[in-house]
C-alpha cells in the first residue's frame, strides 16, 4: 500500500515527483508504517510504503535515486529474503534495516548482503533521517557512475577488435614498441590504432584513456568486457 499525501496531485506534479528521490518503506505494522511515512514526508521526501515484501515486488520501481527502509522481521517473505531477491533481479537499491533487540545474527547477514545501514530499535528518528539521506546520496552517485560507464561502453563498442586489443595493452602500460612486438605489427601501425582509439573514445590524453579503460575494467590479463 502506498501512502500518499492527501492533497490531490496533477499529472505533471507526479511526473516531477518521479524525478525526485523516493524512500520505500516495508513494515507490517500499520502504526510504524504510517509514522515513518509521516516523518519522511515532513522533511520533504517522497515515500512509497508497503505492508509486505511481495506488495513492493509487484510494483514497477521508478528509475530515480531511492532507498529502502526495511524491517528485518517481516511475516512471509522476510527482510533478508527480500534483500536476496532484489540482488537476484539486479536491483541495487540501498537498504536500511530496522532490527529489533537481539537480532545480531540477522544483522550480520544483512550487512554481508550489502545493507547500507541498520538501526536497532528503539532508534532516534534523526539517525534514521540521516541514514536515509546518506543512502539516497549513495544511490544517486551509483546511478551517475553507472550512467558514465554505460557511455564509455557505447564508445568502446565502436572500436574494432584489433583496436580493442591495442587498448587493452595500452591500459596494461605497454610501450608502442612492445605492443607492436606483442601483436606482430609495425610500430607505425600501432600508433595509427592508438590515434583512432583516442579519437573514438574522446580521450584528451593518454592518462584519460587509461582511466577510461580502468572504468571499463580493461587491462592485461583481465577478461574483455562483453559487448
Amino acid at each position: 500500500m502506498i501512502e500518499r499525501p492527501k492533497s490531490p496531485q496533477s499529472a505533471a506534479a507526479a511526473e516531477q515527483q518521479l524525478k525526485e528521490p523516493v524512500v520505500f518503506i516495508i513494515d507490517d505494522d500499520l502504526s510504524v508504517r504510517r509514522a515513518l511515512t509521516n516523518l519522511f514526508e515532513s522533511v520533504g521526501l517522497h515515500v512509497a510504503a508497503f505492508g509486505s515484501a511481495p506488495e513492493m515486488l509487484q510494483q514497477r520501481l521508478p528509475d530515480v535515486a531511492s532507498c529502502l527502509v526495511l524491517d528485518i522481521r517481516l511475516p512471509g517473505l522476510s527482510g533478508l529474503d527480500l534483500q536476496t531477491e532484489l540482488a537476484k533481479v539486479n536491483i541495487h537499491i540501498p537498504i536500511i534495516f530496522i532490527t529489533g533487540h537481539g537480532d545480531i545474527p540477522m544483522t550480520v547477514r544483512a550487512m554481508k548482503g550489502g545493507a547500507v545501514d541498520f538501526l536497532t530499535k528503539p532508534f532516534r528518528d534523526q539517525d534514521l533521517l540521516d541514514a536515509v539521506v546518506k543512502a539516497i546520496e549513495q544511490d544517486r552517485r551509483r546511478r551517475e557512475v553507472a550512467k558514465a560507464v554505460a557511455g564509455l561502453k557505447s564508445l568502446f563498442e565502436t572500436l574494432t577488435p584489433r583496436e580493442r586489443e591495442v587498448l587493452a595493452l595500452v591500459a596494461a602500460g605497454l610501450m608502442n614498441k612492445q605492443i607492436a612486438a606483442e601483436l606482430g605489427l609495425a610500430e607505425i601501425t600501432v600508433k595509427i590504432h592508438r590515434g583512432h582509439i583516442m579519437r573514438k573514445m574522446g580521450a584528451r590524453s593518454l592518462a584519460d584513456l587509461i582511466r577510461m579503460a580502468e572504468s571499463l575494467g580493461i587491462g592485461r590479463g583481465k577478461p574483455m568486457p562483453t559487448t
Partner: peptide
Amino acid sequence: AHEINQPLAAVVTNAEACLSW
C-alpha cells in the same frame, strides 16, 4: 513488549514529524 513498543515508537516518530510540519 513488541506489541507495546511498536505503537510507542510510532508515537515518538509521529511527534517528531509533527514538529517538522
